[in-house]
């Protein structure tokens, strides 16, 4: 096996996993704390990508794009929570699915209206587009950059939730809303904050991905489903579980796409193998989730307080 290729695929898998983690972390907190299933989570992924892309194109600075996109998405997150989402916390999952599906339709169409149906491609700054050699293996610099940023965000999030006062409030609200309120914690504020932070994390994911895949309408719609799969596998409400499951799903998807066509090629004709391979990789992810649900119905790492 070609080790350079393998190292690249491994890095790609971890990178996809980290992107998924950024999405899944917010989704999992919102789900675990507010019992809210949010199909519109991918919207913030898309908005982050679009805002960053247009600023980067207009100004020529990718970094400026990031700096502006994050507060913009935060504002969108707060607005969405205040206008729509908070009315659905106590509703059943069916209503939540539909309402957030409506939000997806609105957002996709609004993006089409403002940016056109084409999608944007994001120029990479020169200092990120080179190759980097690590231990004799040459890796694309930007992908390494994504991995470092996402890993840093993951660790920061972990620390905030485990160590800080805000994290304590979030955990208290998650395990017992009434008790938290009795202790003087403004659960409404906490909910809004959690939702908005989830939105920003999703935006970071979208921004990171945009230079590779471009920003396009509906870019969040498939990935949000993957993020949902991740939190089901990891255990709803568990950040650690989301992390492990995200990396796992990222690796299955990437390595599956890379190697399944070759493996299938040993049995089937090349054309069948090349088209069935990627599909099989996607299917494997759902099979994994199904197996987890059968043998560990509350996920691999369910939070202790449930």
């Amino acid at each position: 096996m070609d080790t350079v290729l393998f190292a690249n695929q491994l890095l790609n898998g971890i990178q996809l996993g980290l992107i998924l983690f950024l999405l899944a972390a917010g989704l999992s907190l919102v789900f675990g704390i507010m019992d809210f299933i949010n199909l519109a989570h991918g919207v913030f992924y898309m908005i982050g990508a679009y805002v960053c892309a247009s600023i980067a194109i207009a100004s020529g600075s990718f970094v400026l794009g990031i700096v502006i996109a994050l507060p913009v998405t935060l504002a969108f997150g707060l607005a969405a929570e205040w206008l729509i989402v908070r009315h659905f916390y106590k509703r059943d999952h069916l209503d939540q699915v539909l309402a957030t599906f409506g939000m997806v339709l609105c957002a996709d169409t609004a993006v089409k209206y403002f940016w056109g149906p084409q999608g944007l491609s994001v120029p990479l700054p020169a200092w990120l587009s080179g190759q980097i050699s690590l231990a004799g293996v040459t890796l694309p610099g930007y992908r390494l950059f994504i991995t470092v940023v996402a890993a840093a965000v993951a660790i920061a999030l972990w620390q905030v939730i485990a160590r800080t006062r805000v994290g304590m409030m979030v955990r208290a609200s998650a395990s017992n809303e009434e008790m938290a309120r009795a202790l003087g914690i403004e659960t409404r504020m906490v909910f809004a904050l959690v939702f908005a932070i989830g939105a920003v994390l999703a935006a970071i994911a979208g921004i990171m991905v945009a230079p590779i895949t471009g920003a396009s309408i509906g870019m969040g719609n498939q990935v949000v489903i993957l993020a949902l799969v991740v939190i089901i596998i990891g255990g709803i409400g568990s950040i650690f579980g989301a992390f492990v499951a995200a990396i796992g799903v990222g690796l299955i998807d990437t390595l599956g796409r890379a190697y399944l066509p070759t493996i299938l090629g040993a049995v089937f004709s090349p054309s069948v193998a090349s088209s069935a391979g990627p599909s099989l990789a996607s299917i494997l992810i759902y099979v994994t989730m199904t197996l987890v649900l059968i043998f560990r119905p509350s996920g691999l790492f369910p939070p202790a307080n449930r």
Partner: peptide, 21 residues
Amino acid sequence: VHFIMITLAFAQMVYFTMIGL
């Protein structure tokens, strides 16, 4: 919600099967 997600998963399996064929 697990029922919602597992039915979704089965549908996605068929969906990707047909894309792959």
